[in-house]
Amino acid sequence: MNWIVWLCRLALAAVFIGASIPKIIQPHDFALAVFRYQMAPYELVNLVALILPWIELTAGIALLLIPKLRAAANLLIAGMLAFFTVAISINLYRGIDIACGCFTVNAEAGHMGWLNLARNIALLAACAFLWWNSSRKESKV
């Protein structure tokens, strides 16, 4: 069981840390991606683009390396995944055809689709598994 736990942690941390780096390096390009989702008020676009990638990075590192913060990091990552899933779904439904802005800030990158949703749901399942596993351990103690 232990190796599945570590696999889930590794996958989630790798995805979130990997996703945060290009956004941190090119905040204005990421702001454009946020703008194109047509969900944040204009005044908040840059703030979201500046802060969100750092939350992804910190949560990813905490999940992997800081046992005391694992539960909080897991919850935060699940929250972000749920939020991204809703945002992608809304824009797929609205027919707004934009790049995902998930792992690259390049607006010409492949446009998002159902695969992005499927990936998010798989990652959410990993979060749920970690949560279930840690509460199971606690109840044994």
């Binding site: 905040p27 802060i51 939350i55 990075l57 910190t58 005391k68 990091a73 919850l75």
Partner: peptide, 22 residues
């Protein structure tokens, strides 16, 4: 309580890092 503390800590560190980085 410890969960909320953890959340606040992670978000706080992230916001501070974001401000500093910018």
């Amino acid at each position: 309580r410890s969960l909320a503390g953890g959340l606040a800590l992670i978000v706080g560190v992230a916001v501070a890092a974001a401000v500093l980085a910018n």
